[in-house]
Amino acid sequence: MSGQGAAAAQATTMPIAKALNSALREAMRADEKVLLMGEDIGPLGGVFRITEGLHAEFGGDRVLDTPLAESGIIGTAIGLAMRGYRPVIEIQFDGFVYPGFDQIVSQLAKMRARHRGAVSMPVVIRIPYGGHIGAVEHHQESPEAYFAHTAGLRVVSPSTANDAHWMLRQAIESDDPVVFLEPKAKYWTKGEVLPEPTAGLHDAVVARQGSDVTLIGHGAMVHVLLQAAEIAEAEGTSCEVVDLRSLSPIDWAPIIASAERTGRVVVAQEAPGHVSVGSEVAATIAERAFYSLEAPVLRVSGFDTPFPPAQLEAVYLPDADRVLDAVDRALAH
């Protein structure tokens, strides 16, 4: 049943937005305790239409159009989880999550430890994150480091339609709170969704094999890394691309194995580099693969500035050229 041919035969091609929508629908059909909460997610289907059609199918008691208050959404989701529900929250944009920050880091994340394990928090917080959409202030940010730094949370970010679908299903099934960062710039990028998951929620995967330099990233950045690897290939450099998928916990084994194979690593992210997930990746590779490294692990990040006005986002966001510049510097050692 798990044969590759059979799986491919049943694969369905759809954009990431539809893969997320179908994951929500299937999770709600499978478990009546799964609820959706968020702003404009009812008849409108959310500002990105990720919940389209779900209010019509499941009604207002399962798809809750909430008052416009992020702390209230997350705080009441905690209470609903205490009552036995499995809330899946949509935060409208990355920069709007901060009014709910205390409820996430001090309440949701710590609730199980405060109860010595007697109470779990099966809550998913979906956040459309990142740039490349030319939007106004607070609509293009990458807040992953805040959440990855917080004990008690799990933080994941898919890059493909298949991962968007299956990782969301897995996140909803998790009894721990999961911050689910969706690459909003890729919502309409199509890909195959397979009939079964091919990896666990927290597995890192090799998205492209190579032998000279390892490129590591997550979410929308994976597409930039694959593009950079294409260009490098034409120039005679073989790049391996590792898709982190999970930012907390991080699946170190495939990362360390790749670093040991290539000896050269570039980590790329849209977020500011200072105290970032990329910093953690670089530090851990230095600790665990030190004697295999031919060059320092290099980071390519957004600048340590506020996300700029849209006209400057192409300057701010790492693109294939900035990744390839780092590849060149790694190869110069």
Binding site: G72, G75, T76, A77, I78, G79, M82, G84, Y85
Partner: peptide, 10 residues
Amino acid sequence: ALHSTGYAMG
């Protein structure tokens, strides 16, 4: 105040 309200919603 929010946890209790959510519980009551449940």
